[in-house]
Write a protein that binds this DNA or RNA. Structure first.
Lengths: 150, 150
DNA sequence: GGAATAAAGTTTGATATCAAACTATATAGT
DNA sequence: ACTATATAGTTTGATATCAAACTTTATTCC
């Protein structure tokens, strides 16, 4: 039973992280076209960068979400016609997810729509060392990630 | 149509923030008792620090969530008997939310259960300037917050 | 005072997310 | 081969979250 039970510094850090996550998500979702969510856009953006279709499980690992979550996001993008899911001919259990022409266009629309907000943020944060900040966070993320598997 | 459409640095930052948020949330929820979620614990913890009951709207603002979200979280804590909701005698629309004895005990249980993980994190991050990191993030949070209202 | 407006809470419908259960296919072990 | 186990995806049930619609009570403004 800790005498000094809560670490205010860590609580404050996670609090800021949680709020930023929420604010950025809603800010971006307000401007993105095609009713794209951040989860959907991120997946679309990821697929737009690699020509070869990817297995759902690999995508789930890349985004650190459960396979159930990835299954759901893929399904929604599929309904919109933005991705195409094909069976893995070598493995009856497996599938491949690839972006469609429509999906690529939607991704480009979204990138364009996000432009102003990102440019504004970029301007406002020129004095910050964003890369340095990101690296510090990456260190903490790796800690949490290692702890998860333990 | 931007030639350099995405700002990799900013995307990377928000990506880390999103993943940390998710990892920390699931890590904490795995150890907390009474089926407490982070949202529920945070509210309970907040209420444990002030003796006087708070209005739901005030709580929603403090946590930067919508009143609908706060309404839902309060309802769940009320079902568990951890908070008590009373009408505002001065204003028929208003309510007040206060923590119960049971709620305070649950909050203390949760703090104790979180102890080991927080201690571990604290140890692992001694070389990091957590406060400085938090302040940098707070600056960005304020930017996003201001943008939201514009 | 009565009508219009505002404010506090709740409800609804949608998405994201997890864990856990489930289905189907593949691989291992004997 | 046959059984047991492992792997890929899907489904289910729960919570969090938002925006928007809705209800109830206050306040404002002629």
């Amino acid at each position: 039973m800790p005498q000094k039970p809560d670490d205010p510094a860590l609580f404050a850090l996670f609090n800021e992280i949680g709020i930023i996550n929420q604010l950025a998500t809603t800010l971006f979702e307000r401007v993105m076209p095609h009713d794209l969510t951040v989860a959907q856009f991120s997946l679309l953006n990821h697929l737009s960068r690699r020509e070869d279709p990817q297995a759902p499980l690999k995508l789930a690992n890349a985004f650190q979400v459960s396979k159930g979550t990835m299954s759901s996001t893929i399904g929604r993008l599929e309904s919109k016609g933005f991705v195409e899911v094909t069976p893995n001919p070598k493995d009856g259990r497996g599938k491949f997810v690839g972006i469609t022409e429509t999906g690529l266009a939607a991704r480009n629309d979204a990138v364009a729509a996000l432009g102003p907000d990102l440019a504004w943020l970029s301007d406002e944060t020129t004095s910050h060392d964003i890369s340095g900040l990101t690296q510090q966070l990456a260190t903490i993320r790796k800690l949490l990630d290692a702890r998860r598997d333990s």
